[in-house]
Structures are given as C-alpha cells and as structure tokens.
C-alpha cells in the first residue's frame, strides 16, 4: 500500500525528517508515537503534499505510484486521506455543499456522474447518524464555530464519505473528551475492513486503546527509533519517551 524509503524532508530550510523508512501493507494499522515537537506531524503533511514541505531525498510509493510527484488533490483522488489535527474553517461554504462537492470530485475521477441530491441526503443522514452528528451541522459553514469535537467528527465523516484506502490521522484525539473520543473511534473502527490501511499519529496511548494498532513506532529525532506491537504503546505510556 505505502512504502517510504530513505525519506529526508525539510521545512523552511530546516531538516525535520531524516532517513525515514516505513512500510504499510493493506489492512494494516500503524501508529506513530512521539513527543511533542518531534516532527511526527511532518510525516502526515509530507504524505498529503502540503506546500513548503520539501522532499530532499528518498521516495514514497503509494499503490505502486510515485506519491511525491503528485499534486495534493491527485493524492486524495488516489485514495490518501489526511484527517487534520486542526481542521480549517471555510466561511460562507455550507458543510453540506462542501461535502457534496468533494464527494463529486472523487466520483468524477472514477468516471461516475455527480450524485443525485436525494441520494446524497440519504447517505449523509446515515453516515451522520453513525457519528451522532446532528443534521443541522451541515447547514453551518465548514468548521466555522464548530467545537473541537464537532471538527474531528466532521473529519471522520469525510473519510467515511470519500472511502479512502489509506487514512492518516494526525493527533485526532487532541481536543476530544472521552465520549467524543469513544464515538469517533467507533466510527473509525467501522472503517477497518481488512483492506483499508491506517497511519495514526498520536502523542498519547488513549486513542490506541480504542483503535488497536498492529504496529507501533516510536518517532524521535526525525526518524523511527523503535518499532514493536501494541505493547510498545503501553510501555511508552508508563515510562515516557525519555526512557528506553
């Protein structure tokens, strides 16, 4: 699914990622844990193609294609989804019309017709219900004035809608209370179908208690310094990042 080889990334002339290697197979759930400021979010932004994140060397293959050569929207259409730590506000754009537009962009790239209004409403209702999202949230402007929990749920709703093959979650647990964390995780777990892959970037163990990873990596100084199974996450939680 995804293979990162010898990746060096710099942001504004400062090297953040140094010789990163990571392979994620279909259906696998990987977690990257690391202290604040270690640059673990840089992995997420680089994979999604954020401007100013410069790949100095190395390469990334996604579904056997050269990911780095593609524009951000092409990566999305190819099936890469990044759930933002801080989802962006789009004033004046209602959530419903935004969701419909991004869905139609994906349908178009698959050669399908734009979705019919009635069908869209049906899908929206069903998927919103799974996340306990009230329908009136969709007549508000995208993320504008949303609470932290609403923003994160809206991210999960979008990943559900766009049906990606790789989901990268960047600190999705931040800003969520226990109830929101639980319902969000449940919705994510429903998307685990054995084919879809996940890369979960987090500081804390708590998200990983709800979404159990197959592999855990500890990130430090721009690279993966230790890998293991989910027990590694518990150890980090007990001992902290400093102790190895």
């Amino acid at each position: 699914m995804l293979e990162i080889k010898n990746l060096d990334v710099s942001v504004e002339d400062k090297q953040i990622i140094k010789n990163l290697n990571l392979k994620i197979g279909p259906g696998e759930v990987h977690a990257i844990m690391g202290p604040n400021g270690s640059g673990k979010s840089t992995i997420a932004h680089t994979l999604a193609g954020k401007p100013n994140y410069l790949v100095e060397s190395g390469n990334v293959e996604f579904k056997n294609e050269d990911l780095i050569a593609k524009d951000p929207y092409e990566r999305s259409l190819l099936g890469l989804f990044l759930a933002f730590q801080y989802p962006i506000e789009l004033p004046g754009v209602t959530n419903a019309s935004y969701l419909k537009q991004i869905l139609n962009a994906h349908r178009k790239s698959r050669g399908e017709n734009p979705i019919d209004a009635g069908e869209f409403l049906k899908i929206l209702k069903e998927k919103s219900k799974n996340l306990n999202i009230p329908m009136d949230m969709h007549s508000r402007f995208v993320n504008a004035g949303f609470s932290g929990g609403e923003k994160k749920k809206n991210e999960v709703l979008q990943m559900d809608l766009l049906d990606p093959s790789l989901i990268i979650m960047d600190e999705t647990d931040s800003g969520l209370d226990v109830d929101a964390l639980k319902s969000t995780s449940e919705a994510v777990n429903k998307l685990r179908d054995g084919k879809r892959s996940f890369l979960i970037i987090t500081h804390y163990l708590r998200l990983l208690e709800y979404i159990e990873p197959d592999h855990v990596h500890v990130f430090g100084d721009g690279s993966i310094i230790e890998s293991g199974d989910k027990s590694l996450a518990s150890r980090i939680d007990n001992e902290g990042y400093e102790v190895k």
């Binding site: 524009d71 951000p72 929207y73 933002f84 962006i88 506000e89 004046g92 754009v93 962009a105 402007f141």
Partner: peptide, 26 residues
Amino acid sequence: DQLFYCMQRGLDAEAAQSLIVNGFCK
C-alpha cells in the same frame, strides 16, 4: 491552509479557490 485543506479532499487548485471565493460572496 484553506486551499490545502480543500485540495487534500480532492478538489484541484481552481475548484478549491472557487469554493472559497463563492463562500466569501455567498
């Protein structure tokens, strides 16, 4: 950030800008 967010969801640069501007004028 707004452009990147929309593009990450599959809109090309022009569609993303058009969405944001139409929101501004709504």
